[in-house]
């Protein structure tokens, strides 16, 4: 087996005339934390469900850990925290982990050991005998997370893993994700909480209307790409065109201009050209592009609606 955890080509899902996922093409490496970002309704959950065999693609091809979609044997190596974490709520936390361990076909001794360790890890050791129906949203999310890690998966899908969690819980999730990567597992993280993604992911894909708009290496992105704001008068049409040639689309509002550059080496040249072109520059500043800036730049402000 090579180092690829997930590979998809033009994966598509339509429900009647509604296109949920238009054509998903991406690749996730083993041992990588991959963020899947997009506005609500962008097709994130449907994509995850296709990769897990819950939803059948209308077209396209994909392989998960080298197996075709829906392969039963490969599910032994997968972990999954569903978006709404609805479980059999009449079970106690310990019974719940026992059930899912048996579904994973784990040996009883190993299951006991893992269940105990995971209850400890997610901070529910004191609540093992409590029924899930008496759990808070955050506790359900924690026990769901434990369930997803029972079998030491090679690939974990986390669908909005921090939506019900307080800051402490979120930190716990980040630590767990890092542990998984350290173990060599791949993590596929579905989220719209950009700060979470920024802190944990190696790479992110931005999706909208079920299509990957861009894939960025997060570490690289934060070191190089810069957002530039400029206040100037008398910017000639030629100077503006020159600027757009260099840096792509420029947003303009009166005297304010905003654009991004690939790295800071480009900045002196831009300023020189503007001044040479007759512009009166009052301010010129640059800062690292946050994931939020990038999200808005790539996905747009319409929220994909």
């Amino acid at each position: 087996m090579d180092g690829v955890a997930i590979q998809t080509r033009n994966l598509r899902k339509t429900f009647g005339s509604k296109v949920a996922v238009a054509g998903l093409t991406l690749e996730v490496a083993r041992g990588e934390v991959f963020g899947f970002l997009g506005p609500n309704g962008a097709g994130k959950s449907t994509s995850v469900k296709m990769l897990l065999g819950l939803v059948k693609p209308t077209a396209g091809a994909a392989r998960v850990l080298g197996s075709r979609l829906g392969d039963v044997a490969v599910r032994r190596k997968l972990g999954f925290l569903p978006e709404h974490f609805r479980f059999h709520d009449w079970l106690t936390a310990a019974e719940f982990l026992d059930l899912h361990g048996r579904l994973y076909q784990m040996a009883p001794a190993r299951l006991r050991e893992r269940a105990g360790a995971l209850l400890e890890l997610v901070g529910l050791a004191a609540h093992g005998q409590k029924r899930l129906r008496d759990f808070s949203k955050g506790m359900l999310q924690r026990i769901g997370l434990a369930q997803a890690l029972l079998n030491d998966p090679e690939l974990v899908f986390l669908d909005e893993p921090t939506s019900g969690l307080d800051p402490l819980g979120r930190r716990l999730v980040r630590e767990i994700i890092r542990d998984q990567r350290a173990r060599g597992a791949a993590v596929f993280l579905n989220s719209h909480l950009l700060s979470e993604v920024e802190l944990t992911c190696d790479r992110v894909a931005f999706i909208k209307h079920g299509e990957v708009l861009a894939v960025r290496e997060l570490r690289k992105m934060t070191s190089d790409e810069l957002a530039v704001t400029l206040r100037a008068r008398n910017v000639s049409a030629e100077a503006l065109a020159g600027l757009e040639r260099r840096c792509g689309p420029v947003e303009r509002e009166g005297e304010q201009f905003a654009f991004s550059v690939a790295n800071e080496d480009a900045l002196p040249g831009i300023l020189r050209d503007l001044v040479a072109g007759g512009a009166d520059v009052f301010s010129f500043s640059s800062q690292q592009l946050s994931l939020e800036d990038l999200f808005i730049q790539i996905v747009g402000t319409d929220g994909g609606l």
């Binding site: 609805r86 579904l103 769901g144």
Partner: peptide, 14 residues
Amino acid sequence: SSGTIQAVVTKPIR
């Protein structure tokens, strides 16, 4: 409809 089935059928069970 509740989604409870999702965590079950993504396990190695047909």
